[in-house]
Nucleic acid binder design. Structure first.
Lengths: 189, 189
DNA sequence: CCGCAAAACCTAATGGTAGTAGGATAGAAA
DNA sequence: TTTCTATCCTACTACCATTAGGTTTTGCGG
């Protein structure tokens, strides 16, 4: 039989596609084996176990998100940077629901340190630079923004806004306006 | 053999306990059958399938959360109401991580309409009453608050704040201060 | 008190996912 | 050409979910 040429890389890559197409819950070693027309047991030479694969997909998702965040923040400041960063989150959630879910897969501390998560936080800090916050307040602001981005995207994706007027877009806009105002008038404690 | 006296009620009840003790992922029909010392197949007389049970737990979680929200908002207004409502969310997430996760289990439209989710939204609206927002802005404010509460709780629970100073409590405080200010100075479009 | 019907619970089977142990082999290097 | 090793396989165990259809308990009407 001809060898397919499996690789951890290829598995994670295919896992990303699969998660995005069918949802993170469908991301299973068995499904991946079917896609490569290979027996399930064969995958264990390249991947420690199911969670290992999912962690790989999660790390890739975080990296992709961080890439976009870096790009969005570059050359912008103030509200423009804030909005660009926000759109990155919401669009990513909308276009890659599987990866967006994967990005919240629990990672070990070692996996987390070098991940895109840290880079994402740095991009947020950079986006805030224009607001001139005190050093000590920057973390709080990052957490506020991160919470809103994540929460809103999740609720929208989960359909929580589906059965109440008006369009989520408007709420998103108003939310960003409000956050911008908050950051501009941030009072140091 | 003596009959255990299974009921959909008792199953959902036990499911809530189990989810809270061991996590929502452990909530499985097989585990429940073991707890009641009953064969797995026996559960299907009381519950349509695994998702049906999880939906039951989810609805109960939403109800519980809505109960606490109603209680927190009653007799309070303005920032006091806002903070009380916020604490309900964060404490609920901290004390009942399993139920908190369950509350985000995807529900069908029919299940969702009469659920605690709607009541929760009403409690939020009530909490906002003191800020005197225009009718059209209230939804946006509710969505802003809901997003922050959810996002922050998730990030904290997921350990995203664990490896950066300072304590999440302070960020939470500052975030609520910021939201309070935002609501007070909300400008109608 | 008795019989019977519905409810409660069971046995038995199927099929899907995860994971381990150990064997066969393709393909490259010696 | 021979040998070696990564690659992939067979064969198994152990979970969970679900359905079909059988048996026993229980309580209610007679």
């Amino acid at each position: 039989m001809p060898r397919v040429g499996l690789t951890r890389e290829r598995l994670v890559e295919a896992g990303c596609d699969l998660a995005d197409r069918e949802g993170f819950a469908v991301l299973t070693l068995a499904e991946l084996a079917r896609m490569f027309e290979v027996k399930l047991a064969s995958l264990y030479s390249h991947v420690r176990n199911s969670d290992d694969l999912k962690a790989g997909v999660a790390l890739r998702a975080l990296d992709l998100l961080a890439d976009r965040a870096d790009e969005a923040v570059a050359g912008r400041a103030g509200k423009e940077a804030l909005v660009a960063l926000a759109e990155v989150h919401r669009h990513f959630a909308g276009e890659h629901p599987g990866l967006f879910e994967a990005a919240r897969f629990p990672l070990s501390a070692e996996q987390a340190v070098g991940s895109g998560g840290a880079r994402l936080a740095r991009a947020m800090l950079a986006a805030l630079r224009g607001y001139g916050l005190a050093e000590a307040d920057q973390v709080h602001a990052v957490r506020l923004l991160g919470s809103f981005f994540l929460g809103f995207s999740l609720l929208e994706l989960g359909g929580s806004f589906a059965h109440s007027q008006p369009e989520p877009d408007l709420s998103w806009q108003r939310g960003l306006d409000a956050l911008d105002l908050t950051l501009k008038s941030w009072t140091t404690t």
